[in-house]
Simulated scan of single mutants.
Amino acid sequence: MSKQIHEFNDIIRKLRKNLFGKGPERIHTVFINDMAVTTLHGNLSPSEEFIARTPQGREMVHAARTRMIQSVYAEAAPCGMEELVGAKFVHLFSDIKVEDDIAVSVFLFDRPIDQQPEEGVKADGAR
């Protein structure tokens, strides 16, 4: 895993831990063109797991988590995210499958973030 992706995952983990009281146990992120696609495992707190034992509880946890995370990202990108990827954050698409405790977030940026300069080569192509 690249250092940049590791740092991106840390930003997401810290934000979710602060927001929900528990961060994901495992995060996997890939950069594709102007998107960061992140899969998060082990998201639910013990209280959420208890509430999610019934269909109504699962719906409540799903609605609360998706609406809450989307409202946070609608206000502003997490501190350091845009600087890390070198692009402006545009939108977040996010969902969680409560039964399997897995979430997916797709972060959309205003330009490609997957093109890093080769080691030893400056961004303008000079060595």
Rank of each mutant, 00 (worst) to 15 (best):
M1C: 15
I5F: 09
E7T: 05
E7N: 12
E7K: 12
E7V: 02
F8W: 08
F8V: 04
F8T: 01
N9Y: 01
N9K: 02
D10Q: 13
I11A: 10
I12R: 10
R13H: 14
L15R: 00
L15C: 04
R16P: 02
R16A: 09
K17L: 12
N18S: 15
F20M: 05
G21K: 01
G21W: 03
K22D: 13
P24K: 00
P24Y: 00
P24T: 03
R26M: 03
R26E: 06
I27V: 10
I27C: 07
T29G: 02
T29R: 02
I32S: 02
I32R: 04
N33W: 05
M35F: 08
M35P: 01
A36C: 08
T38N: 12
T39Y: 06
T39G: 12
T39I: 11
H41W: 07
H41K: 06
G42S: 12
N43P: 09
N43S: 10
S45V: 06
P46T: 07
S47T: 15
F50Q: 12
T54I: 14
P55I: 08
G57W: 00
G57L: 01
R58V: 01
V61H: 00
H62Q: 12
H62P: 07
A63V: 02
A63P: 10
A63T: 10
A64S: 13
R65E: 09
T66A: 13
R67A: 13
R67C: 09
R67P: 05
Q70S: 14
Q70A: 11
V72H: 10
V72K: 07
Y73C: 10
Y73W: 12
A74V: 03
E75L: 11
A77N: 02
A77I: 00
A77W: 00
G80A: 12
M81E: 12
L84I: 01
V85C: 05
V85N: 00
G86A: 03
G86C: 07
G86E: 07
A87S: 14
K88W: 02
K88G: 03
F89K: 12
F89D: 15
H91Q: 12
L92V: 04
F93I: 10
S94Y: 02
S94D: 07
S94N: 05
S94G: 06
V98L: 01
D101P: 14
D101M: 13
A103Q: 02
A103C: 11
S105N: 12
V106Q: 09
L108K: 05
F109I: 10
D110F: 00
D110I: 00
D110R: 03
R111L: 06
R111M: 11
P112T: 11
I113N: 00
D114V: 14
Q115A: 15
Q115V: 15
Q116Y: 04
E118V: 04
D124H: 03
G125N: 10
